[in-house]
Design a binder for these strands. Structure first.
Lengths: 319, 319
DNA sequence: GGCAATGCGGACAGTTTCCGCCCTCGATTC
DNA sequence: GAATCGAGGGCGGAAACTGTCCGCATTGCC
């Protein structure tokens, strides 16, 4: 049986390559008779993976899109590519699929052979700073998978934390949720030492590790962790609210400046407003539009842009 | 058998979740006896997928990293997350794994159910402009998968092309290689109408489609397609060579400005040099370092920075 | 220390399934 | 029309699977 099941997996793996396979060649490769191949193909179809066949000479089998995802059979490099892709996506907290990214990452990391893990680590480090608006602090994808594991497994979590005011502490908490917020990730956890719920910014954690000790999850005093987080953050987060006029059609701005509200003023002008916690991010995004603009708020952003202005002036010297 | 093989896949799927499963629960879920579960676990191990078991109460099975990648069983959202992650990675042409990214993308897109494909498309469009240094022209990941398919399947390819000088043409070529170069992708193909080899920038293609017509691949007049491309591009590419002094330790610059040479001047200063074909990319990366710098070459970059300088000046008004 | 939960694995018997070998048929390409 | 491919029915022997026994080891909790 192990033989039959293994053969089915190999068959799936072959059929996932972007080409067509004549039954005779599959039979040669898998060392069974062509009749068995036909039966295997039937089995795959029965399992819900649509194998399409073209008749006639030059014909062959290939796997096509069906209603369910078939198991992905990846070679080493593809696995590394996927891991790296997920890391960049998680680091940018791509809107709408943050949790899924982390879940997929956790799933992949759980089974990723160590030799590949090393390659992912090396590549991940090398490609980190391509992200726009990096203020030097980006979340470590490794941390996210550790947290996801601890949450799913209800294991206590130990880490060191640098609070916003710079105070460092050692924590030992019961993790409950991982919440993306803008470009940040927050851990919602119960801190038994302080006997209360706490929020931790993942990029401020150092060396989080699941301790293996199980705990019975407590009920969060709110239905929606994200709402609870927002409520808690309100007022204490150092976020900047930007309001600016941009001389570019609203359609273009929406396409190129994600996460902000865009309001049309006229065909060639619009007004953007939005929130972020770093001035760099806002400034670069406005500049990146490549058009004229005016910043109305906040004063800090104006000051930041003046700083940039002066810095560029010093960099290129007098005109 | 279909049943046994299907059960093994379900088992793999369960074991890939980040938790432990007692055999009794697996037996309940898969509707077989615990003895069969033990045998299934053995089968998985025999296939090379290491299932670890913890003894004692609170024990259970889980899949751990082995020497080979097990088939990944993804739910809808995870599949979407992976597709989106690969797209961002491919768009940025993350160094060293470009081809693997495209291969994995092609594999995934081939079997991605259409309802998920739509979600990926929507998300991909929304997240496009986060990339730094976008000059508005980024490669469409969809194109890459079409090209990869055509190359692997030796099918002729039809597309419309806008050359660097703006001339538009309709092409019908025999694709041979997909070569990443910097942040660009190039297709190496034989053009039967012109009876010679041609290079096409993927982001300048419109609506590439594989025609289904097969061809016998010709030998490229060079061993390495990448080298052949470089040779061909030499002199005709509009690339800018930057030389700048940056007032930041060389170590920091290397970590935050990928793809350029960094040479230490003293502990707080270094000199960077590199190539790129857009001024925006170079300018933003220099600014993003957040430190003082001087640009020595090229004159175009200095001019571009002056433009930025003036634009910021107009944006924030007189100090 | 005992109990309960967990995993491990041998033996057996009945049933099912698989596999290779025949065969015919339909579709497609050259 | 010939060659090549997929689809699928039937047959018989061999192999595999499954459930039910059984006793064993390990771990955590009371």
């Amino acid at each position: 049986m192990t033989e039959t099941a293994g053969r089915l997996l190999s068959l799936l793996s072959l059929l996932q390559l972007p080409r067509e396979w004549p039954g005779s060649e599959l039979a040669r490769r898998l060392e069974v008779s062509p009749r068995t191949i036909r039966r295997d193909v039937d089995r795959l179809r029965e399992l819900g993976y649509p194998v399409e066949a073209s008749m006639g000479a030059e014909g062959g089998y290939r796997l096509v899109a069906g209603t369910a995802m078939p198991p992905l059979l990846l070679d080493d490099e593809e696995a590394v590519a996927i891991a790296v892709g997920l890391r960049t996506a998680a680091r940018q907290a791509v809107a709408g699929i943050e949790e899924a990214s982390v879940r997929a990452m956790a799933k992949l990391e759980q089974v990723l052979p160590s030799r590949l893990r090393r390659r992912v680590g090396a590549l991940g480090a090398a490609t980190l700073p391509v992200v726009l608006g990096a203020d030097g602090v980006t979340v470590d994808p490794e941390h996210l998978t550790v947290l996801a594991w601890a949450i799913a497994n209800r294991e206590r979590l130990r880490f060191r934390y640098s609070a916003a005011d710079g105070a460092r502490s050692s924590r030992h908490v019961e993790p409950l949720h991982l919440v993306p917020s803008g470009r940040r990730w927050y851990l919602v956890a119960f801190d038994p030492e302080r006997e209360d719920w706490r929020f931790f910014r993942v990029d401020r954690m150092t060396a989080p590790t699941a301790t293996g000790a199980r705990f019975a999850p407590r009920a969060l005093p709110a239905d929606d962790p994200a709402a609870y987080l927002r409520e808690h953050m309100l007022g204490r987060a150092s976020t900047y609210a930007v309001v600016a006029t941009v001389h570019l059609p609203a359609r273009d701005v929406r396409a190129r400046f994600p996460g902000v509200e865009v309001e049309e003023v006229d065909e060639r002008t619009c007004r953007v407003s939005g929130l972020d916690d770093t001035l760099e991010y806002l400034a670069f995004h406005l500049l990146q539009l490549g058009c004229e603009f005016e910043v109305h708020e906040p004063a800090e952003l104006v000051a930041h842009l003046r700083g940039l202005h002066d810095r560029i002036g010093r960099a290129v010297g007098p005109g």
